[in-house]
Amino acid sequence: MNTFNKEDAKMVTLQTQVDTSHEDMIHDAQMDYYGTRLATCSSDKNVKIFEISNSQHKLLAKLSGHEGPVWQLAWAHPTFENLLASCSYDKKVIIWKETSTNQWEKLYESNNHDSSVNSVCWAPHELGLILAAGSSDGSISVLSCNIDSNVWDVKKIQNAHSIGCNSVSWGPVFPPTNFSYTPQKRIVSGGCDNLVKIWLYSESEDKWIEEQKLEAHSDWVRDVAWAPSTGLPKTLIASCSQDRRVIIWTKSLATANQESSSSGWSYNILNTFDDVVWHVSWSIMGNILAVSGGDNKVSLWKETPDGRWICISGLSQTNK
């Protein structure tokens, strides 16, 4: 375990500061696939989209449709044109579509939960237009779209986490090992039961089943992130918790594509921080992990060739 030392870390350079003019706390900010547009959401119930160019930014659209604080956003892959998902305390998931330049409309509104929807995440585009959402009602909903007819099918994982589900993240589509290989759908989730769970969609049973239960955290799991496939013979999941720890879960790809009752997952504690850790996010190449928490700092971590995780950069969020 490596203790984060801000004196030893290189500082990230602040390149752009965006004045969103949200009227309340901002809960999420997500860049699109090309890194040219930024979507933000807030307790003011609104979603905003900005154009980011060099050090300049311009408001392109304001999306109003939620009736409560908006917790999280997710851009779909550009294969499906310009789609943005949002989830809210109002129990709704809204999928927004850009119908013409900077003109956005509701494509679909989901009302499948009995409590706040806390997390949304799109599946890898190879699997189709599929969105997962985790809710405080303890369930996970999976929304699949028939693109030609815009008909949405919803499947629910009931009682995925007792007390509530805080985060969902899709597993990557692994490179085929043979010509008969069919990509498998997997989701990792984190909840208020202190657990990280992996869910596998069973084609034969037409339902989601609990494939694995990962136990190591001692308090609510606030976020989970499955690393993109990097071509390495292993897959990684990061989780963070109110117990102030970030944990890296590792499994060999030799067993990752197999339905098995044996775990195969091992874990390392990346670090124990000074405050609750709210969010973990992988770089697009899956080799750098960003961590942010209640200490108002963002730190970047990378695995060394000998398997150790080191802090390569830190950013204090107070230097605005």
Rank of each mutant, 00 (worst) to 15 (best):
M1H: 11
N2R: 04
N2D: 10
T3C: 05
N5G: 03
N5L: 08
E7G: 02
D8N: 12
K10P: 07
V12T: 07
T16K: 14
T16N: 13
Q17T: 10
D19E: 15
T20F: 02
S21F: 10
D24F: 12
D24V: 05
M25H: 09
I26G: 02
M31D: 05
Y33Q: 09
Y33F: 14
Y34M: 11
G35T: 04
T36L: 13
R37H: 12
L38H: 06
A39P: 07
D44V: 04
K45A: 01
N46H: 04
N46S: 15
E51N: 10
E51Q: 15
S53N: 10
Q56T: 14
A61E: 03
S64T: 14
H66T: 12
E67D: 12
G68N: 15
P69V: 10
V70D: 01
W75L: 08
P78V: 02
T79L: 05
E98F: 13
Q103A: 09
K106D: 00
Y108G: 00
S110Y: 01
D114F: 02
D114K: 08
S115A: 14
N118F: 00
S119Y: 00
V120R: 03
C121W: 02
H125C: 12
L129H: 01
L131T: 02
A133D: 01
D137W: 01
D137S: 03
D137A: 06
S141D: 10
S141I: 15
L143H: 15
N146S: 07
D148M: 04
V151Q: 08
D153H: 10
A160T: 09
G164C: 04
S169W: 03
W170Q: 02
G171Y: 01
V173Q: 09
V173A: 13
F174D: 04
F179Y: 10
T182D: 05
Q184F: 00
Q184K: 14
V188Y: 04
V188C: 11
S189P: 09
G190V: 07
G190F: 03
G191C: 08
G191E: 12
D193H: 13
W199A: 05
E203C: 05
S204N: 11
D206M: 13
I209N: 14
E210C: 13
L214K: 09
V224H: 03
S229G: 10
S239C: 12
R244N: 15
I248V: 09
I248F: 12
T250A: 10
A254Q: 14
E259A: 06
S260I: 12
S260H: 05
S262Y: 02
I269D: 08
L270V: 11
L270H: 09
D275F: 11
V276M: 03
W278A: 10
W278I: 01
S281G: 08
W282F: 12
I284P: 03
M285S: 15
A290D: 09
A290C: 11
S292R: 09
S292Y: 01
N296V: 00
V298T: 10
S299N: 14
W301T: 06
E303I: 02
T304E: 03
P305E: 07
W309I: 05
I310S: 01
C311P: 05
Q317L: 15
T318Y: 06
N319Q: 15
